[in-house]
Write a protein that binds this DNA or RNA. Structure first.
Length: 491
RNA sequence: CGGGGCGUAGCGCAGUCCGGUUAGCGCACCUGGUUUGGGACCAGGGGGCCGCAGGUUCGAAUCCUGCCGCCCCGACCA
């Protein structure tokens, strides 16, 4: 019927693209690599923002906004930072257009060249630390705990809706502290906030860990991350939190007078999650019939479909439904009563399944007679008929149960797809045949990491924070290792 | 940036090899009617610079040249 999805088993990445488009989350724009986030998709983002923003505020952060454009010279201040981003920057070189003399349209006015080119921010460390230099004189000005919600641009060669786009939306936290210890604690605190959010709102279990040298953020001393597993057995980095040390403070000369009267460079952190989370949300939970959204992020919690033949029937149903929706809205749920007479109930059922609405109610003449209503849950597809009087008290518990069930299912999947291996043969076999997370010993050298990546396409996703001390031998080099690290093929 | 594929109605495609009246199909859209507890049916209707520019020809979606754009697969990345 034009709405059918490619199945996951047939072509996982096509399934993903179909789903994003058919569930009306987003579409490609005319600018390569960019996307239009449609209202249904954007509402998911708004719900994410709401949850995260509250958590940021609760941990003492405030929001601010820094400019989109960064003077080119700023980016060059921190050597590894510029190296990390140089290859994917969009650059503004002119500030004016004019009509072409031959009438063929508009052209860039060559007389309007900028003295210094501006970089469209790929991330904001540089502009922000440039401000911090002015804001910080003394230990009394610290800490600064700022977050910003913004868009950034990274000129990627290959893009995929939500997972990797040239422009994306995110939040970036940038904090400044008087001591290394405090900054390190902040880094871990925000990692925990992310893990909490992803597990409790997105219903997606994550592994918290530290990145290897090769995988860490350009400009950071340490990068921590949360890694989630997608249904196709590939890993997705869901959030990162960086301990910046004094790198940016030194690059932007941000010093402060300590209590003791000496001068010291400020310690920094930065941390972010992006609209990529929406991609992860889709890939982690959804099925061949469409999206499955956790209630805590779903734009619509309950869709109500009336079944009617006549106008009078619809009238009677509407009266009942109004009571129910008012009650549910009072409890804080987003309810949609779909009283369109242009589509049949069956069409609507399929549509709400495609869009991942957690709970669907159906009510028709039969129900009016019996004082009942049909309740269907998206995650398990179970349907049951309940008394209309108790439906509004059942739904909050049902939504909680759905949230929990989605999480449990994802956790079980991850556990099944996490394999401990001790030889390189096993390592390769598991990656090719089973996929998922592979826990293996690693000798800690970048050379081994690179060689494994070269041979298997798998990377070290992280060194898990809860890794047990365990003597072993590196799967690749055979050299001694004290703990297992998490390998996977990744997005 | 290499390799492959594709641009024809809002979407998905056929037609192109072998040039020939008015460019076709499915979905979507509009109108009317019958329907409505799992993606309705019938009838009628609207919608096209056939990616752009040039050339060959009596005649080009179709052949030739150039350009532009997109998708897939690789090297780089949240």
């Amino acid at each position: 019927m034009g709405k059918e999805l490619t199945s996951r088993s047939e072509d996982y990445s096509q399934w993903y693209i179909d789903l994003v488009k058919k569930a009306d989350l987003a579409e490609n724009s005319d600018v390569r690599g960019c996307m239009v986030i449609k209202p249904y998709g954007y509402t998911i983002w708004e719900n994410m923002q709401q949850g995260l923003d509250r958590m940021f505020k609760n941990t003492g952060h405030v929001n601010a906004y820094f400019p989109l454009f960064i003077p080119k010279s700023f980016l060059a201040r921190e050597a590894s930072h510029v190296e990390g981003f140089a290859k994917e920057c969009a650059i503004v070189t002119h500030y004016r257009l004019k009509n072409a003399e031959d009438g063929s349209g508009v052209i860039v006015d060559p007389d309007a060249k900028l003295e210094e080119e501006l970089i469209v921010r790929p991330t904001s460390e540089t502009v922000i630390w440039n401000s911090y230099k002015r804001w910080i004189q003394s230990y009394r000005d610290l800490p600064i705990l700022i977050n910003q919600w913004a868009n950034v641009v990274r000129w990627e060669m290959r893009t995929r809706l939500f997972l990797r786009t040239a422009e994306f939306l995110w939040q970036e936290g940038h904090t400044a502290h008087a001591t290394a210890k405090e900054a390190e604690e902040e880094t871990i605190q925000m990692l925990n906030v992310y893990a909490d959010f992803v597990e409790n709102f997105m219903a997606l279990p994550v592994v918290k860990g530290r990145k290897s040298e090769g995988e860490k953020f350009p400009g950071a001393i340490d990068t921590y991350c949360i890694e989630a597993l997608m249904q196709d057995g590939k890993a997705l980095q869901a959030g990162t939190s960086h301990f910046l040390g004094q790198n940016f403070a030194k690059a932007f000369d941000v010093q402060f007078a300590t209590k003791e009267g000496s001068l010291d460079y400020v310690w920094g952190t930065s941390w972010g999650v992006s609209t990529r989370l929406i991609g992860g949300l889709i890939m982690a939970h959804s099925d061949d019939d469409g999206l499955i959204l956790p209630p805590k992020l779903a734009p619509i919690h309950v869709a109500i479909v009336p079944i009617f033949k006549s106008e009078e029937e619809l009238q009677k149903i509407t009266e009942k439904v109004n009571l129910i929706s008012t009650e549910l809205r009072k409890k804080g749920f987003a309810v949609k009563f779909d009283n369109r007479d242009t589509h049949k109930p069956g069409f609507k059922f399929a549509e709400y399944e495609l869009k991942g609405v957690p709970v669907r109610l159906a009510i028709g003449p039969r129900d009016l007679e019996n004082g009942t209503i049909e309740v269907a849950r998206r995650d398990t597809k179970e349907k049951k008929v309940v008394s209309i009087d108790e439906v509004t008290t059942l739904i909050p518990a049902l939504l909680d149960e759905i949230q929990q069930n989605i999480y449990t299912k994802a956790l079980k999947f991850r556990e099944e797809k996490t394999t401990h291996v001790d030889t390189f043969e096993q390592f390769k076999n598991v990656l090719d045949e089973k996929g998922g997370f592979v826990m293996a010993h690693w000798d800690g050298t970048p050379e081994t990491e690179a060689a494994i990546k070269e041979e298997t396409k798998a990377t070290i996703r992280c060194i898990p924070l809860d890794a047990k001390e365990e003597a072993g031998k590196c799967v690749y080099s055979g050299k001694p290792s004290s703990k297992r690290v998490l390998f996977a093929r990744a997005y």
